[in-house]
Lab assay of single mutants.
Amino acid sequence: NKASVVANQLIPINTALTLIMMKAEVVTPMGIPAEEIPKLVGMQVNRAVPLGTTLMPDKVKNYE
């Protein structure tokens, strides 16, 4: 099972992601793969992401 990116804290809307905000966890359904964490640093979320929520591609601005 592959790990996904999960919010390590509440991430407010329009916040630029940092390493400390994210952790890798095996979750269902799968979100953004954990190996993409370095790519996500500096990207902004387009909505608030509660603690423990899986980061889905549609929650990150300009994620492809």
Rank of each mutant, 00 (worst) to 15 (best):
T54M: 05
L10H: 15
L17D: 01
V49S: 02
K2R: 14
E64T: 14
Y63D: 02
M30E: 12
P12F: 08
D58I: 05
I20Y: 14
L10I: 07
M22Q: 00
V27M: 06
L17P: 00
K61C: 11
S4P: 02
V45R: 02
L40I: 07
A7H: 03
N8V: 11
L40R: 02
V6E: 00
M21P: 01
P50C: 09
T53F: 09
L40D: 01
M22R: 00
G52D: 05
V26P: 05
Q44P: 01
V45D: 04
L10Y: 15
V27T: 09
P29K: 04
A3N: 05
I32N: 00
I32H: 03
K23R: 15
Q9D: 04
I37P: 02
K2L: 12
P57F: 06
A34Q: 04
T18W: 06
K61N: 10
N46P: 02
G31T: 04
P29H: 04
E35G: 11
E35R: 12
K61S: 09
T18Q: 10
Q9C: 15
T54I: 07
N62Q: 09
E36C: 14
L55A: 02
M56E: 05
R47E: 15
V41K: 01
A3I: 03
M43F: 10
P57H: 06
K59E: 15
R47H: 13
V5E: 00
V5Q: 03
V60Y: 01
A3K: 11
V41W: 00
P12A: 08
T15W: 08
N46G: 06
A34I: 04
M43Q: 03
V49W: 06
L51P: 14
E35D: 13
I20C: 14
A16W: 13
V5S: 01
D58V: 03
Q9L: 10
K2E: 10
N14L: 09
L40H: 00
L40F: 03
G52T: 01
I37Y: 00
A34Y: 05
N8P: 00
M43R: 08
K59L: 15
Q44Y: 15
A16M: 12
T28M: 13
E36Y: 11
T18M: 08
V60N: 00
N62F: 11
R47P: 06
N46S: 11
E35K: 11
A34K: 02
A16K: 13
N46H: 08
K59G: 15
V60G: 00
P33A: 09
V6W: 05
K23E: 05
P57V: 04
E64G: 14
L40N: 01
L51D: 11
E25P: 03
V27G: 01
N1W: 15
A16V: 14
D58L: 05
V60P: 02
V27P: 01
G31I: 04
M22N: 00
V45G: 01
N14H: 13
I13G: 06
L17M: 11
N8K: 11
P38K: 09
T53R: 07
I20Q: 13
E64C: 15
G42I: 07
V5G: 01
V49P: 05
K39P: 02
P33Y: 07
A7M: 04
N14Y: 11
G42T: 03
Q44R: 14
E36R: 09
G52S: 04
N1M: 15
I20P: 12
A48P: 12
E64D: 12
L19E: 09
A24W: 08
K39M: 13
I11T: 03
A16S: 12
G52Y: 04
A3Q: 10
L55T: 01
L17R: 00
I20T: 12
I13H: 06
L55G: 01
K61F: 10
M56T: 15
Y63M: 01
Y63R: 00
A48I: 11
A16I: 14
E25M: 15
M56W: 06
K2A: 13
T54Q: 01
Y63K: 01
T15N: 01
V27W: 06
V49T: 06
E36P: 01
I11S: 02
P50L: 09
I20D: 12
V60E: 03
K23W: 08
P29L: 07
M22D: 02
P57N: 00
N1Q: 14
A48L: 12
P29S: 04
P38A: 09
M56R: 05
K61A: 10
T53I: 07
E36I: 07
T53Q: 14
Q9F: 08
G31K: 05
P50T: 08
L55C: 07
K59M: 15
Q44W: 09
L55F: 07
P50N: 07
